[in-house]
């Protein structure tokens, strides 16, 4: 089953005013569980809006966002008829069942941001605590965990995100940009989210910093089997790390499939102003010049292999 499913989701900014703007237009999209999915699109294509819908920060204007099949924005009126038939509510009177269902919905809403971890763009700007340790512990503390559990999670998350143990008692403001980014990532991973959503995790970092961040993300995904969504416009990163790719353009999903499937649409992608990975472009140029190389090469490693095969 899909971990996340967007069911005819639309999102309109400033509805009913002259500044009305459609950010998502009747989008249907399923995200496979346990996969790393990349979301590509231009600025203003609806990527960032989609992220905020996933953990309830924004509510769709119409349509439903399903997490494990449950509508995350479910209301009492919406679910009462169905839920009241469940075993745990069946024997209750109508008003008691209503109360119990309301409580369950509230609980679900509260834990939603812990289940779907959101790492915003430039997350280093959200650091605020005196020490790195305390900052990573902020999320787990909001979950109401015990001190031992918090301690365990902070060190686990630090290991995933590549946060050095030696930084733990330092002020986060004394770290470099890339180091801060890793601390911020650890702050979200420490909540052990089933779904990790990241907005441009590599933006503004040097290649080493980028690699460190992406390694951390992939390490977390592989170890815990969680579902990861990465919003980016770097085709190289998408091709290197993602299993699936979703292409958004003008508030709609244009392509959705594995990297190979999506990047095969070279001409269509360039038509909407997106580039295919540079290494793929190179291979296509080589092919044009008459070299017998495959055109479905998306990463440096594959390219090296394909070229070695020629020699």
């Amino acid at each position: 089953m899909d971990k996340i499913y967007l069911d005819h989701v639309s999102f309109v900014y400033s509805a009913g005013t002259p500044f009305e703007q459609k950010a998502l237009d009747d989008v249907c999209l399923g995200i496979r569980a346990g996969c790393l999915t990349g979301i590509i699109g231009h600025t203003g294509s609806g990527k960032s809006t989609m992220m905020q819908l996933l953990n309830g920060l924004a509510k769709p204007t119409s349509g439903r966002v399903l997490l494990d099949g449950d509508d995350i924005n479910a209301t009492l009126e919406g679910v009462f008829d169905e839920w009241s038939k469940r075993q745990e509510y069946q024997h209750l009177s109508k008003s008691a069942a209503k109360k119990a269902i309301k409580r369950e919905l509230l609980d679900k809403k509260r834990v939603l941001c812990f289940r779907v971890g959101l790492v915003m763009q430039y997350p280093e700007y959200q650091l605020f605590e005196e020490t790195v340790y305390k900052d990573i512990a902020y999320g787990p503390r909001n979950m109401g965990l015990s001190e031992e559990e918090i301690h365990e999670r902070v060190y686990e998350a630090a290991a995933f995100a590549g946060v050095d143990q030696a930084w733990m008692e330092k002020s986060p403001f004394d770290l470099s940009g890339g180091q801060k980014r890793r601390v911020a990532l650890a702050g979200v991973i420490a909540m052990r989210p089933e779904v990790l959503v990241l907005d441009e995790p590599g933006a503004g970092l040097d290649p080493q910093g980028r690699n460190a961040i992406f390694d951390g993300i992939v390490h977390y995904q592989k170890t815990t089997g969680s579902t990861v969504l990465i919003v980016s416009h770097s085709m190289e990163d998408m091709a290197r790390f993602c299993d699936d790719v979703v292409v958004l353009s003008q508030a709609k999903v244009v392509y959705h499939g594995t990297c190979k499937e999506v990047f095969a649409h070279v001409d269509e992608l360039s038509a909407i102003g997106l580039d295919i990975p540079q290494i793929t472009q190179l291979m296509l140029l080589l092919k044009e010049r008459g070299l017998p190389v495959p055109s479905n090469v998306y990463t440096l490693e594959d390219a090296v292999r394909a070229l070695q095969f020629l020699v």
Binding site: Q52, L57, C113, L118, M120, Q126, G139, N142, V188, M191
Partner: peptide, 13 residues
């Protein structure tokens, strides 16, 4: 607004 959203995503209330 951005910072508020980021902290809400970490469970701030």
């Amino acid at each position: 607004e951005k910072i508020m959203n980021a902290q809400k995503a970490r469970g701030a209330n």
